[in-house]
């Protein structure tokens, strides 16, 4: 999915060293990805225990470090994926939606001039999101970033449940295709 761009030493993957038990790499990892993990936890745990979530995510990350494969994803995307999995588990355990806000906000998509340089996947996803139909994008963002269930998205947007599901499916397949660099129709 991911072809590693040229990396400066500051961007060199850390997880291999973490997996090898390098304490310095653990510290660097926390310094490099702390903001990312904290941001994701705060987004998902609104009103919850963000600090607890952050600690759980990093523990998962240490355990998952040996599984990181730079040929599949950037390290940043891998960290975000691990974080998302833990946050989703926490939401499921709580059995409630992450936010107490009555209406979840749809985050803004950066325009072409302000694409995120966090990692290649982020800018590719931003471009692909911009190409989606507005209602598809809205459903996808409420689902991915807002943590809403399809039913909750339907209630918030007034869309029928079947429509929400279809938009979520088509939307995520489009982003996935963009990341894989192929036409969606060519994918299994």
């Amino acid at each position: 999915m991911h072809a590693s761009p040229d990396m400066s030493p500051a961007d060199a993957p850390l997880l291999g060293r973490v997996a090898a038990g390098d304490a310095a790499a653990v510290r660097e990892c926390i310094a490099r990805y702390g903001g990312l993990v904290y941001s994701l936890a705060r987004r998902s745990e609104a009103g919850g225990d963000v600090e607890d979530a952050v600690q759980e995510i990093f523990l998962d990350l240490w355990k998952s470090a040996p599984r990181f494969d730079a040929n599949i994803a950037s390290e940043t995307a891998f960290v975000a994926m691990i974080a998302r999995r833990r946050l989703i588990d926490r939401r499921r355990t709580r059995g409630r939606r992450p936010s107490t806000d009555p209406v979840a906000e749809v985050p803004a998509i950066p325009d072409e001039a302000n694409l995120p340089d966090t990692c290649a996947e982020a800018s590719q996803a931003a471009r692909a999101l911009a190409r989606l139909r507005p209602e598809q994008r809205q459903v996808l963002l409420l689902s991915i970033c807002g943590g809403l269930s399809h039913g909750e998205i339907g209630a918030q947007t007034g869309m029928p449940l079947g429509t929400v599901k279809a938009h979520a499916r088509r939307g995520l397949l489009s982003i996935r295709a963009a990341l894989l660099g192929v036409q969606q129709e060519d994918l299994p």
Binding site: R84, P110, A125, A126, I144
Partner: peptide
């Protein structure tokens, strides 16, 4: 999972990412 993570990454405020813990 990576596509969903990329969407999250695309919509986070870069300043928050740099802020650390």
């Amino acid at each position: 999972d990576l596509a969903a993570a990329a969407i999250d990454l695309a919509t986070l405020d870069p300043r928050d990412l740099e802020a650390g813990l």
